[in-house]
């Protein structure tokens, strides 16, 4: 079967600068300044067509970075991502311009994606219909609630019909009815053989929906495989983690941070 997404040894390095001067020096001088931080380190996996992959992990484990890299909005520092088809990402307010109205955002977004004026005019009613924004569609997006924004983002993305779909927390802000509508739509996509990535803290949604799960921890893959199994492990971990005292939690995070900063020393 043809792989739809192949992620190979992807690392994403960010630099943490203490001052502006440090940032400038790093840019201009050959010597490296600032502290390095690996949001992702050496992540590899493959996705088949029709896979629905859940990304789980505690805050700061690299879920959003990974989804951004798959969507192609940010470049990986090392490694490669091969996608078979167009990828689109939905997260709360991705690429929406607050000053513009909902309708203008639809037009602009579709223009940026390379659709012609006529195609956009055809797609617009569908998008507005799906977003359930009705009379709010001509109001500026900055006045929208987060639920409205994610509805608009979701409606645009599904109507432009990408092959690979990344949903980053977008469903957790809408109400149950809309979430259900989106899940139905995604089931339809699943049948059409589209690949989906699903980032959420709602394990119930994941259980119902994903067939594979990747568990990220401190920018690395801690476990991946069948959804039910990994989710069971993850749930067990969460229970344990929640039982930590605040001090232990902090120690856990610090240990992770040190790991993510020190990766370089190990690999180079």
């Amino acid at each position: 079967m043809k792989k739809s997404v192949v992620v190979k040894n992807v690392s994403k390095k960010y630099k943490l600068y203490d001052t502006h001067a440090e940032r400038l020096k790093d840019l201009l001088l050959p010597k490296s300044y600032g502290e390095e931080f690996y949001a992702l380190h050496n992540v590899s996996f493959k996705a088949d067509k029709g896979d629905i992959i859940g990304l789980v992990g505690v805050n700061g484990s690299g879920k959003s970075t990974l989804s951004n890299i798959i969507a192609g909005t940010i470049p990986p520092t090392k490694g490669s991502v091969k996608t078979n088809g167009e990828a689109a990402m939905i997260s709360v307010s991705t690429g929406l311009n607050g000053k513009l109205s909902g309708r203008e955002n639809i037009e602009l977004k579709c223009l940026m994606l390379g659709f012609s004026k006529r195609q956009i005019r055809q797609m617009e009613p569908d998008i507005i219909e799906f977003s359930e924004l009705e009379q709010f569609i001509d109001q500026p997006v900055k006045s929208y609630s987060s639920g409205m924004k994610s509805r608009l983002g979701f409606a645009i993305s599904i109507t432009v019909n990408p092959d690979i779909f990344i949903v980053d927390e977008a469903l957790s802000v809408g109400d149950k009815a809309f979430a259900q509508k989106c899940l139905d739509k995604m089931h339809e996509f699943e049948q059409r053989g589209k690949t989906m990535f699903f980032v959420s803290h709602s394990l119930t949604q994941m259980k119902e929906f994903c067939n594979k799960v990747i568990w990220l921890e401190f920018g690395e893959i801690r476990a991946e495989g069948e959804a039910s199994e990994i989710l069971k492990q993850y749930e067990a971990f969460l229970k344990e983690y929640n039982a930590f005292t605040p001090k232990e939690k902090k120690a856990f995070r610090n240990q992770g941070f040190e790991k993510q900063s020190a990766v370089r020393a190990v690999t180079e």
């Binding site: 969507a71 192609g72 909005t73 470049p75 167009e86 990828a87 689109a88 990402m89 991705t94 690429g95 311009n97 602009l108 977004k109 940026m112 994606l113």
Partner: peptide
């Protein structure tokens, strides 16, 4: 740049 959501733009 934030309006752009794909790399090959």
């Amino acid at each position: 740049i934030k309006m752009i959501s794909k790399m090959n733009f």
